[in-house]
Design a protein around this nucleic acid. Sequence first.
DNA 1: GTAGAATGTGAAGTTAACTTCATGTCAAGA
DNA 2: TCTTGACATGAAGTTAACTTCACATTCTAC
Lengths: 153, 153
Amino acid sequence: MQMFGIGELARKAGMATSTIRYYERIGLLPPSKRVNTKRRYDTSILQKLSVIRMAQHAGFTIAEIQTLLHDFPVDTPPSERWQSLAGKKISELNELINRVQTMKLLLEQTLQCHCPTIEDCAKVEENMDTGELGVKPCCGVETISNVQIVTEH
Amino acid sequence: MQMFGIGELARKAGMATSTIRYYERIGLLPPSKRVNTKRRYDTSILQKLSVIRMAQHAGFTIAEIQTLLHDFPVDTPPSERWQSLAGKKISELNELINRVQTMKLLLEQTLQCHCPTIEDCAKVEENMDTGELGVKPCCGVETISNVQIVTEH
DNA sequence: GTAGAATGTGAAGTTAACTTCATGTCAAGA
DNA sequence: TCTTGACATGAAGTTAACTTCACATTCTAC
């Protein structure tokens, strides 16, 4: 099996060696194989780092990623603990998507209007009960709404 | 016009007074009116804080929000500077949405499979050229793909 | 064998976005 | 008058996720 050191891994994964050591120290990565004190990795580590990076980009904290990786279901079917965890995460991601969509609408609208300030322009509405945000059209711009996220199976 | 102090604003906006003072100190909010050294606000400040909060939830840093608010177009049509700024932000938001969608797929898949680890399970692919991520199905789960984001006008 | 690159460790430093603290002013109510 | 509560300021503290530093080893090439 092809093995390589921390320097090459860092290059392959596009991150600093210090980050990899840090991940190992906090237990996000398992203790690596050692050859005479030096860390040695095989390609499977890259998969792991990809998952970590993707989760981070999606807004997960390191602590959350720890939990997700640690509590991964080893039994069949997935434990209830994992199910509720993943379920909660999924709905958090849905909320995030909504917020980002709203922000996008706001920005797109400002590109088409002539209002004096951003607050006047994209009329931001906040439902104080639910905390939800909405954007109303302004200054003659035709209505932009009905955002749909379609996930086909 | 109805005015109120920092305490009431904090309650209305659902944030700490220290946060509001902090925003003012760093110039994210303009210096407020003062009555005998005490800060006084009218309701327009709430709109401002909503925009800030929404932008933050969408993943903007305070520094970016500064720029967005500060460089808002005062001329007609929107200045090129603002256009390129908003355009860049919009595509960043699109990338973010894609990453979040990918993470969602990964989580949804794990709820249906029996793989021993998350890396084995949702086969994460990373296109090393573009840096894009994808999730392949595994262990007999029917293909989940074709994510579309449709924004209707 | 020796210089230079790569790696190891523990501790301290960094950045963002706040929060907490110590201390002080001031107006209103008992 | 005294006390309480809201507000003010500048400085220092906090948390997450790393990075940098100082210094010791080790591997590689010439």
